[in-house]
Amino acid sequence: MFNETNCRFAKTHEWACAEGDVATVGISDYAQKEISDVVFVELPKVGARVEQGTPCAVIESVKAAADFFAPVSGEVTAVNDALGDNPGLVNQAPHGEGWFFKIKMARPAELDSLMDFEGYQRSVSH
């Protein structure tokens, strides 16, 4: 899943890690800190089509709701059911067990429009 070399980040703080034409997606460590304690993640349904840059999930904290924008386009092939019982996984392991869902990418080249790990780190460090 996530590793620093194969992962790409959107300006809106989502990450996508590709294995073949399937990308696993989630939110960055920076984003989970900003949102603070996640209480619920409203995920898309398996089979749903998502478009890069458009909202397709919602992350709720006690007093806020943040949109999750699809980092790449495609069809949702699996969702992380563990978040249903334990949304805190997003805070504990945003790059690991706190992943959101998997997308069968329609246009893998979209990954190129995203930042690499270092670029993203720089963008949120100032």
Partner: peptide, 13 residues
């Protein structure tokens, strides 16, 4: 509780 559903937080959404 579950206030993140509500208008004062989600507004038009």
């Amino acid at each position: 509780t579950l206030q993140a559903r509500e208008q004062h937080i989600r507004r038009e959404r």
